[in-house]
């Protein structure tokens, strides 16, 4: 007389044309192949997906992020710091700032980590072709900026004037110092400024906005009307920078920022990254400034 209902097994079931349910918690197992100490707080990890077929399929756009997991320790989003054209591995620039990253600072080469992604929106590099590019980073903001910088280097002829403005607290916090000459060699104008000099520092001292002001004085208004900007750093910094650029009529839709929020899923489920009511993981992390202006509590 009973009536046993049929069990529907969703494992590996194609739910949507675009994605299968098994993908949600699927982790690429990856190996840390090198750890490069950048400062006393930041390391650059080179990470390679172990399975050759998975590695072959893996691609990303500049500005996208990965969820990196150390089993039992935690999982967090990190923007990819290497060139999208570089196949085989990715580089993540990670500051020791929490329990996951502190453990990560103690692991050795050869350790396996989990990767999920890539997730999120990217900097629309193609749309910037033929334009002047301003790449502006404050502090650790240079980490997400390094992927678009690499793209610009590799496609230098497609862009007009390219400037990098990079500011940190002090000289000890400057990241990727070994690359500055290479950037300059690719006809990129690099301006570095620190908040507080030390005894050895001979460069500029002050805020990023100081460099921008000089740039405003030096270049005509027409220059800025054909300029796209990518700004990465603390919200207070990009707010100042974007508003300054807007006084030169750089369209807000041509200024791109990357927002940082806590995330657990990367897939628009956990809500931790919501800004106003937008998921940073799905609609971001890269937003144009016009969108950011319309988001409550974004900055």
């Amino acid at each position: 007389m009973g009536s046993k209902l049929a069990f529907s097994d969703v494992v590996n079931q194609k739910h949507h044309r675009r994605s299968d349910l098994g993908a949600f918690e699927h982790t690429y197992k990856a190996e840390i192949t090198s750890i490069h100490r950048l400062t006393d707080l930041e390391n650059l990890y080179r990470i390679k997906i172990i399975d050759a077929a998975e590695r072959e399929r893996f691609e990303f756009q500049p500005g996208q992020f990965l969820m990196l997991e150390l089993p039992g320790i935690g999982e967090a989003p990190f923007s990819i710091s290497s060139s999208p054209s570089r196949r085989g591995d990715v580089e993540l620039c990670i500051r020791n700032a929490g329990s996951l990253t502190s453990f990560l600072s103690r692991v050795e080469r050869g350790t396996h980590v989990g990767l999920r992604g890539p997730f999120g929106t990217s900097f629309p590099m193609e749309k910037m072709h033929g334009q002047n590019i301003l790449l502006i980073a404050g502090g650790l903001g240079i980490a997400p900026l390094r992927a678009p910088i690499a793209h610009v280097q590799e496609n230098r002829s497609r862009f007009n004037n390219v400037d990098i403005i990079y500011g940190t607290k002090d000289p000890a916090h400057l990241l990727f110092t070994y690359q500055y000459d290479m950037w300059r060699a690719d006809d990129i104008r690099l301006s570095v400024i620190v908040d507080k000099a030390d005894a050895a520092w001979t460069g500029r001292v002050g805020m990023i906005t100081k460099i921008l002001e000089e740039m405003f004085a030096e270049r005509g208004d027409a220059f800025f009307q054909n300029t796209c900007a990518i700004i990465c750093g603390p919200p207070v910094m990009f707010k100042f920078v974007c508003n300054m650029l807007n006084t030169k009529d750089v369209p807000m839709q041509k200024m791109f920022v990357s927002l940082e929020r806590r995330m657990h899923c990367g897939m628009g489920k956990c809500c931790r990254c919501n800004v106003g009511s937008t998921y940073t993981c799905l609609s971001g992390p890269v937003f144009d400034y016009w969108t950011v202006m319309n988001l409550k509590e974004a900055i």
Binding site: S8, H15, H16, L21, F24, M267, G268, K269
Partner: peptide, 21 residues
């Protein structure tokens, strides 16, 4: 809509939802 209808359907929810009469 959120947990099954998006680009990233959530299997933990979907498995239970699809098995509920």
């Amino acid at each position: 809509k959120v947990l099954m209808g998006s680009v990233y359907p959530m299997p933990y929810y979907a498995a239970k939802r699809q098995n509920a009469f």
